[in-house]
Amino acid sequence: MSTLSVSKAIREGLHEEMVRDENVIVLGEDMAVMGNVFAITQGFLDEFGPLRVIDTPISESGFTGMAVGMAMRGLRPVVEWMYDDFIGVCLDPVMNQAAKMRYMTGGQVKVPIVFRAPIGAGRRNAGQHSQCLEALFTHIPGLKVVCPSTAADAKGLLKSAIRSDDPVVFLEHKLLYAKKEDIPDGEYLIPLGKADIKRPGKDLTIITWSRQVYFSLEAAETLSAQGIDAEVIDLRSLVPLDWEAIRASVQKTGNVMVVEEGARRGGIGAEIAAEIQEELFDDLDAPVARVAAANVVSPFSPPLEDAMFPHPEDIVAAAHRLLAK
C-alpha cells in the first residue's frame, strides 16, 4: 500500500501504460511543457519525448480528430480535454467517427482511444466549466463511459481503458484530484463494468459514482445513526453497466435511489430508474428516487452553486421521503 492523490494515481497508471506500450501517446492542451493543469503528465515530456507527449493548440476539434485518426492507424492515444464542457466543439470525431468506425467497417478498423476529461461542480467555475455530462456520452452507442471515484480505481480503470480496443470516455471529478488514498502496490487492473459495493446495507440502495460516492457514504453514516441501513454502490463505469450488482442490491433492499451530480432531466438516474422498474418492478417497495442537480445552468455564486447540485443532506432527506420514516 502507498498513499497517493487521485491525480498522482492517474499519472502513475498513465506512466505504467506508456512504459509498457510505446503506442500509448498523450496529447492535449498544456500536456507537455506544463505537464497538465492538474500535473497529470509532469515530467512526461522529458521521459517520453515530444513525439509521445504532445502540446496542442486550443483546437479540440482538430486534435481530437487527429487522435481518432492515430487510433485508427494503430496508436493508442490518450486525449485530454481540459474540461468535459469542451466536448461541444469536438463532438463529431467522438460521436460519428470513434464511436461508429469499428461497427461500420465490419471490424476492419478499431479505435483504441481514451478521452480523459475533468467533470464536476463545486469549484466556482461557472456555467461553462462545471458540468457533469456523463449522460450525454452514455447516450451514444459505441462509447464506453468510466467515472472513477477513488485513487485506486482511477489508476486500475485507466489502465483497462487504455487497453480497451474501443473508445473510452474517462471522466475525472476535478474536486477529487487532490484526495489522497491508499492504493495497492505494483501493477493491477480494474475491469470496466464492475461496480463496487462501498457499504453493504439492507434498507436502501444508493446507486452513484464519482464524487457523489463520498457524499452518499457520508449520508449513509448519518442514516445509520437514525436506524436506516443504506447500501452504497459505486458504479465506477456507466457503460458497460454492472446490472447484476444493481439487481442483487435492489432485490435485497426493495428501495432504491440514484444519486448523480449531473442534471436531473435525461440523466443517468432516469435511465437506471427506468431499467429497474421494467426489470425489477415486483421487488420495489417504493418508486425509484433520483437525487440530481437542478435543471439549471451552474451558477457562479457559491451559495447558489451549492444549492444546485446534491450534497449529503439532500441524500439523507431523500432517503427519509423514500422510506417514509
Binding site: D282, D283, L284, D285, A286, A324
Partner: peptide, 24 residues
C-alpha cells in the same frame, strides 16, 4: 400497495386489502 409488498403478501397468503399502509 407497493409491488414488493403485494408480492410478499401473495407469498404469505395475507389479505392486504384490509391493511392500513404506513408508506407515503
Amino acid at each position: 400497495i407497493s409491488p414488493l409488498a403485494r408480492k410478499i403478501a401473495m407469498q404469505k397468503g395475507i389479505d392486504y386489502t384490509v391493511l392500513k399502509g404506513t408508506g407515503p
